[in-house]
Design a protein around this nucleic acid. Structure first.
Lengths: 127, 127
DNA sequence: CGTTCATTTCAATAAACGTTGAGATATTGA
DNA sequence: TCAATATCTCAACGTTTATTGAAATGAACG
């Protein structure tokens, strides 16, 4: 479950570049269905060549994954890596002061609040 | 509450370097009391010059803060920035699929589990 | 089977980054 | 004040990284 240091470095390195950070956020927000490479590039204002370079970089870092669908290559976020990254960074964060990291937990929980309310007991696969 | 893109880029850039990533983790684990610059450098295997350079970098990025204490400069993690960074990255992560980001929430919660149990109702300041 | 569309690869230039060691600054105690 | 300790600053070097545009790949459809 816990990530290795070198994987975390690759991931943070990948996230430390404007185009790639935007790409990851666009894909995080796009959900599991993902976006075609061209759409990602357009969403973040990158040339097709730059988009390909940065998406490959993100895939090598394990932050996104790709699948072919007809003519397009569809990229989507790897939420498990993002989650592992958070865990790696905050590992043993409390040291007897749980109030230190609960704000981080709440920030993350807040993002799910509306979705949770919408789909608390119903299956969500549709469309 | 939400972080700006350029701040997030600075933070991820700071975390994308082995020495600095180790430093942040050492300081996260050290808790609010922090560690002297020399101790941080020693903990991560950096020369004093390199330690100073990287700690300054981390401070500029908002990930750590410093205070003087006698001859030493004590560095400590800025948990609020780490929390904001997580929020920035995962913003709008669910899109109707809350099961996507709950693992991340649980990862983060797990880190506080023992501390929570230990100090659920008692104040924690001691020695 | 050849054309089109989407994406990737390549090579060159330019910019950013980390490391090093020497020297500067600031604090403490004799 | 002087010496010792802790940390920071600076500049030069070598390495890594991003960008660009042109060319190549690879799948799909008539």
């Amino acid at each position: 479950m816990t990530m290795q240091e070198d994987k975390a470095l690759d991931a943070f390195g990948a996230l430390s570049q404007e185009t790639r950070l935007r790409m990851v956020r666009a894909l995080v927000q796009a959900g599991p269905e993902g976006l075609a490479a061209g759409a990602v590039g357009e969403a973040v204002g990158a040339s097709s060549s730059a988009a390909s370079f940065h998406l490959s970089h993100l895939e090598r870092a394990g932050l996104v994954q790709s699948r072919r669908e007809a003519r397009s290559i569809i990229y989507s976020a790897r939420y498990s890596t993002l989650s592992a990254l958070v865990e790696f960074l905050m590992h043993d964060c409390c040291q007897g002061h749980p109030e230190i990291c609960t704000p981080a937990i709440q920030s993350l929980s807040a993002c799910c609040a509306t979705a949770d309310a919408r789909s608390a007991s119903a299956p969500v696969i549709e469309g």
